[in-house]
């Protein structure tokens, strides 16, 4: 599974578990308007760390937090890329 698919998959799964209504996801979806709360994001980040072996929030030199789903996926893709390199 690619990074983007893994991210979207976790968004859906955590929304279901936490009983949160998830909006239709697209790259421009603002994370905080997706229907998920901070706890959901914390869970998503931990699960992606286990699944992909990366946690760009902790390891990234980038000091900007992702705002949209597109940013979020790119954040992970960049981290996965630099890990593979």
């Amino acid at each position: 599974m690619g990074v983007a698919a893994a991210v979207v998959d976790q968004f859906r799964q955590v929304a279901r578990e936490q009983d949160k209504p998830l909006v239709a996801l697209n790259p421009d979806t603002v994370l905080l308007e997706s229907g998920l709360d901070s706890l959901c994001f914390a869970i998503i980040v931990a699960r992606l760390e286990d699944q992909l072996g990366i946690d760009p929030f902790t390891t990234s030199e980038d000091v900007y937090f992702p705002v949209t789903l597109g940013d979020f996926i790119k954040f992970y893709e960049d981290a996965a890329g630099s890990k593979a390199a």
Partner: peptide, 11 residues
């Protein structure tokens, strides 16, 4: 478990 979003989560 350490979390960069909420400080910690429960596991």
């Amino acid at each position: 478990r350490r979390s960069p979003i909420t400080g910690a989560i429960v596991v």
